[in-house]
Design a protein around this nucleic acid. Sequence first.
DNA 1: GCATACCTGATAAATCTTATCATCTCGCGG
DNA 2: CCGCGAGATGATAAGATTTATCAGGTATGC
Lengths: 139, 139
Amino acid sequence: MQTQRLAQIMQERGVRRTPQRLAVWRLFAEEPGLTIREAVRALEPAGIGQATVYRSVKALEGAGLLLGFPAPRGELRYAAVLDHVHLLVCERCRAVRRLHECRLGGYEAEVEQKTGYRVRGHTLVVYGLCPRCREGGEP
Amino acid sequence: MQTQRLAQIMQERGVRRTPQRLAVWRLFAEEPGLTIREAVRALEPAGIGQATVYRSVKALEGAGLLLGFPAPRGELRYAAVLDHVHLLVCERCRAVRRLHECRLGGYEAEVEQKTGYRVRGHTLVVYGLCPRCREGGEP
DNA sequence: GCATACCTGATAAATCTTATCATCTCGCGG
DNA sequence: CCGCGAGATGATAAGATTTATCAGGTATGC
């Protein structure tokens, strides 16, 4: 995913750009749907300490560059995002796709009006089976 | 929330109905937005062991009676649900409201068609500020 | 470039989560 | 209504995850 735009966004949001954070973000961009712990293990060989991974995930999530979503078994998994996206998650093999269309603007406005809340955003995760798992093939 | 329907659903989905599980579910119904650990502490005085709380949450979540959602700081919080609902979460005081309208059926169908996935469901969480926090009042 | 506020890695400490096992109980069938 | 057995519970221990600490390093603004 666009490393260019990533740098820009980090700058804008006051998130310091370090090699470690870039590595963390890139990992979640290449393999969306990892848990933090899995990321720790994946980045260990690169010499990135576990505390750094935890801290980076928090920083990136706070800046809206990582999106967390609940997976079966009570796991919290993350995916790298740049703009607002919806996630499409395969329940079997955990493949994650990003859906770039969002037509919930009207829904948000309606919720604001009906509830008195000030809506700031939303997270939509769609669960299902990817084409391959759907056919009963290997994940 | 309707304890009646709860019993029915547990029966239907083969989830054994025990006083502990009912207590766990009721807690998340009365105070949606707790973490598991907070639930453990809340139910300790009632003599419910922590292992039981963890196991109950898993069982109830598996049966679709609890819904997990990611909160700031990387926390996974839960709310009791009976039917499919969307959650409206206050980012400041963490109040949780359930929204019973869902107009994403068409969206799901569209996603199926465009991606080849077999869609089985979705989770939508809307974030914002509740009326009180919106005014800058106390949570 | 320089200063400094912030980040990092290593380690230890604190928390959270799961496993184990003896006992208990829910839900079914008689 | 009662007894049976699969499954649930509680207490505790063991294991795993997450955070705190601190000395040193490095991105960023001037």
